[in-house]
Nucleic acid binder design. Structure first.
Length: 465
RNA sequence: GUCCCCAUCGUCUAGAGGCCCAGGACAUCACCCUUUCACGGUGAAGACACGGGUUCGAAUCCCGUUGGGGACGCCA
């Protein structure tokens, strides 16, 4: 049988990091088995669902490279079908009308809590004569759930999980306005969409018992389930905004690469021996549910940064240069674009994120005269100016403008003067990059070129001297 | 409150009774490389929550305790 998985977010906000991982696991599982990965938007909450959220989720999935098959299913549009199934259950005696008011239910819960019992609906309309129905009240449809025995989930991650049916109550299938509840629509949609494997956060584990009862009532074959642990913040509590609970676009804006985020998310809750750097091709080949752990994991930016740095260094220079230009919000001519590409090798080894990369690339994109930061200005005081002026004269005659030849010229110069290389290199760095840290300075000179280099030195020596 | 799930270095994890006085990665620290900062390399420190069993032998199995998390809506 072909594997069919799905990602089913509710469009009440952005695609958060936990959802992204759930989507990734579903996608990998489907791709691993040569199956189908589908997207269903659970927009039945009309108050909270928004078009922007739908767009954010779709953009987020696309950015992450998680492509889905077949057309996107919108759950709200299927409400008539959900009602149809509920009515069928009514007809079969598997469901019934309940005329309880919200106040009654609230009281029931309060009493149950006080008595130390599970907070559940007591089933007072379960076997009551419909003639008793109050004429002015619209009823909900409730599932006639089994009252004895137990419901068992065979979970691919959590193992066998069972609960006594007395713990579960008769849940609402159709609201009094005739719209379906989440619990009901999920089952109908998963069934109709031919989903074979439901992979979702383990906050749904206990919902599964109830959903299983709907499958049983309809005589449907339930899919297999895999409930993956949630992602927590660094403090072990729920992921907060400042700890990573952002939409994936937040990660994009911070300068993370989709392949890095994919790799990071994959390793959060899943392992394959000692492997850490895992390409997407490899992930598809290796991914299985056995490798998914059962304990929740904590989100760690430091590790994400490390992974991102790795993928950054692997990235194509032209791609990075384009991203840097976009981030800097500048327009550059083709000469500067070439300069950025040429300088990228030195730049990308020094950055963890695209944002950092862009910040460090400013001196390549900028036109003269350069802005010098405080430390750079400090490096251009005292005899540094004199050294720079002399070095400039030596360099002006240079016939070979490559990093290696520039370095040997500089070394010859400092040796002749009896000073350390650093005494010339640091002022040079300050003058050429406006900072005290940068890629190797002779490489910078090569990338900048003869004319620009001398010009920047002149700017620095005249402005300060 | 009731039910369910979880528990290995700070973090992510390897570990499916002897290969483990517990391995890898990130982070940390030291050293090397080096014109700066990175990258890279070498090394150090660092964990089986606790208590009982079972067994010749337990990180691995069982029970309990503690600690986390989740679910108990006419939200999804």
């Amino acid at each position: 049988m072909t594997v069919v998985t799905r990602f089913a977010p509710s469009p009440t906000g952005f695609l958060h990091i936990g959802g992204a991982r759930t989507a990734l696991f579903n996608w990998l599982y489907a791709r691993h088995h040569g199956g189908i990965f589908r997207l269903r938007i659970e927009d039945t909450d009309r108050q909270r669902s928004t078009g922007e959220a739908i767009e954010a989720i779709i953009d987020g999935l696309k950015w992450l490279g998680l492509n889905w098959d077949d057309e996107t299913v919108f759950q709200f549009a299927r409400a008539p079908r959900h009602a149809e199934v509920a009515l069928e259950m009514l007809k079969r005696g598997k469901a019934y009308y309940c005329y309880c008011t919200p106040e009654e239910l609230e009281q029931m819960r309060a009493e149950a809590r006080a008595a130390g019992k599970p907070m559940r609906y007591d089933g007072r309309w379960r076997d009551r004569d419909p003639k008793d129905a109050p004429p002015d009240l619209k009823p909900v449809v409730r599932l006639k759930a089994p009252t004895s025995g137990e419901t068992i989930v065979q979970d691919k991650v959590q193992g066998e999980v069972r609960v006594a049916n007395e713990q579960l109550d008769d849940m609402v299938l159709l609201r009094s306005d005739g719209t379906p509840t989440y619990m009901h629509s999920v089952v109908v949609d998963d069934h109709d969409m031919g989903i074979t494997d439901v992979i979702r956060g383990d906050d749904h584990l206990t919902n599964t018992f109830r959903q299983l009862q709907i499958y049983q009532a309809m005589g449907w074959q339930p899919p297999s389930f895999a409930h993956i642990p949630l992602i927590h913040g660094p403090d072990g509590a729920k992921l907060s905004k400042r700890h990573g609970a952002l939409g994936v676009e937040g990660y994009r804006d911070m300068g993370y690469l989709p392949e890095a985020l994919r790799n990071y998310l994959l390793r959060l809750g899943w392992g394959h021996g000692d492997d850490e750097i895992i390409s997407t091709e490899q992930a598809i080949q290796w991914f299985d549910l056995d490798g998914v752990g059962r304990a929740p994991s904590r989100f760690d930016f430091a590790k994400l940064d490390n992974l991102n740095g790795h993928y950054l260094r692997q990235s194509d220079d032209a791609r990075l240069a384009r991203n840097v230009v976009a981030r800097l919000g500048v327009t550059v001519d083709s000469a500067i674009e070439r300069r950025l590409i040429a300088g990228m090798a030195g730049l990308k080894a020094r950055a963890k994120t695209l944002k950092e990369l862009a910040d460090n690339a400013v001196f390549y994109a900028a036109n003269r005269p350069l802005n010098l930061d405080e430390k750079a200005r400090a490096a251009l005081t005292g005899n540094a100016i004199g050294i720079l002026r002399e070095l400039r004269e030596a360099l002006a005659e240079s016939s070979s403008w490559t990093a290696t030849s520039l370095e040997s010229q500089a070394r010859a110069f400092t040796e002749a003067k009896g000073i350390k290389l650093g005494q010339a290199a640091q002022p040079l760095r300050a003058a050429l990059t406006g900072a005290t840290t940068s890629p190797p300075i002779f490489e910078v000179m090569e990338v900048l070129g003869h004319e620009e280099t001398l010009g920047r030195i002149d700017d620095a020596t005249s402005a300060t001297g």
